[in-house]
Write a protein that binds this DNA or RNA. Sequence first.
DNA 1: TTGTAAGCGTTATCAA
DNA 2: TTGATAACGCTTACAA
Lengths: 329, 329
Amino acid sequence: MQKRPTAADVAKLAGVSRATVSRAFSPSEYVAEETRAKIKEAAEALGFKRNALARALITQETDLVAVVSGKMTSMYDAHLFNALTHKLQENQKWGLLVHADEQDVGVLLGEALSYPVQAVILRSGNVEGGTIEQCKSLGVPLIVIGMADVDIAADFVCIDNQLGARMAVERLMKIGKRRIAYIGGDKRLYSEIARQEGFRKAMNEFQLDILDVQFGDFTFESGFEVGSKMLASPNRPDGVFCANDAMAVGLLAAAQQITGLSIPDDLAIIGFDDIPMASWPCFQVTTIRNPVMPTAEEVVRLLALRQSTPEAPSQVVQINPELVLRNSA
Amino acid sequence: MQKRPTAADVAKLAGVSRATVSRAFSPSEYVAEETRAKIKEAAEALGFKRNALARALITQETDLVAVVSGKMTSMYDAHLFNALTHKLQENQKWGLLVHADEQDVGVLLGEALSYPVQAVILRSGNVEGGTIEQCKSLGVPLIVIGMADVDIAADFVCIDNQLGARMAVERLMKIGKRRIAYIGGDKRLYSEIARQEGFRKAMNEFQLDILDVQFGDFTFESGFEVGSKMLASPNRPDGVFCANDAMAVGLLAAAQQITGLSIPDDLAIIGFDDIPMASWPCFQVTTIRNPVMPTAEEVVRLLALRQSTPEAPSQVVQINPELVLRNSA
DNA sequence: TTGTAAGCGTTATCAA
DNA sequence: TTGATAACGCTTACAA
């Protein structure tokens, strides 16, 4: 920040008042075309740009949105992030990046909130009390992606995990699988909890016994490792629902190393999310799509809604999952 | 943005002046411990936070940094982004997100620059003139990641692509390969240009003929496709250097489908970047590591340097590549 | 140690 | 259609 030209500089050069310069930059204000042209020209010459800070201060409205996101460990995270930033930009919002590695969301968000933001968009496995309190006390709307909780005063946008899990079980049933197992991820994360619950409910509904339940940590490596053990067991499943694609691909890779094991005949695999890798020719994993664009769109819709109707009751928006058939099930 | 409490509110509640409230929040200012405690208490009660906008306006210094990044299409992008935001945060900087899909970097950056940012960090395949001009005319330092150009008045942080390519060729030579081919990515991107040049120079230096040169677009799918063709050719190489890991893994996957083809005996593969996937048990690709942490660290170092010494001549910082030996070469 | 008052770069109100 | 002038929420001389 240094010798940034100000409206006063432009005013002097154009021979008008500061107020007129300001007006010249507001399309809705009345100002003689001639004057406006003169001002624009002077502004151009100086490289003048209205200072968003000073503007926000007086207009009392920001186009800043805090985007809280953890480490992006999978392509799903990266794609969601892409979609979100894309949509925000399309709606003239600027994302203020808050990178929360661990449990430090509260502190970091606190610091970030020294910027008056229009809302906080949180993409995280867990929403702790401090975060919600902070937003509430500052009157900043909170929009959470990837989980749902009707008891928290925040908006939520989340894939319908239960339905997704049910679709997976249904598919495995349909292709004749009865010895069905589950590979879950980090037990503290909402996606794991919800998907496992959906899986259990569906299995129960179809009156199927759950053959095996194992846990990885949502990574390929863990899917490979846990999957290898599961396949080595004498009690081997003929169908596995994995809580995300990375683990499903890991399991598939493990299965591919066992000679004579045919996919999907001996072993069917269904993942969750539909990351690009699931469609690679060497994998071709059947999965439950968790679409990022609709998610991002709902987020900006809620953002707009909160701005126009701040007092509206908080919403939980469910995104529809979709069964994507490939070779693994 | 609504009923955010201000310093005046706190002052009234604590029974002091606005100035004292301000001082109470600056650790270096003298203010009676008793008063400070009283003010902190009042601030706490109201949920007061100093407004960063107003602060920046008066202090004339921002902790905002524009982070321009395209769509993240690979885990390398995601990791670099993680590392960068992490480091920025560690240095009390806030990233203002600019998501540039295509050639629209100029326009978007222009809008983003209405916020007085300390610097612009650009992660992109191409730096066009408009971007540089805009930064210069506003006196905002520009730091570019992933390319190097001594003729542009900006700081650059970039892996030493030539050295990396050379290390790959050297390794292929060392394990007895002489029929060496190259699979490149999008020809407009700097990484492609620099890595290919490095490859050609090294091949020339070792007095080897280049067997084949093909191009994908830096994705797994393209590596698989181009690789399949390359392997089907009667003039099949015994060693391939790929311009990134995604394509190297794609090529490997294609090779794995050919029965009787042994890796690395019949075909050695070397990638670039060292993304997690390269180390997966089913791939184990030898690669040239392009480390993200050192890159991010250099960026924040340059950021600090530009702030303390704005007029220092621009730098091109080369990051050292590293040969990571795995099973594919 | 604290209060008063000026000012950062804008926009909004009110006259002219 | 334009120009003074007062805000916005803060920091910082300068006084007290």
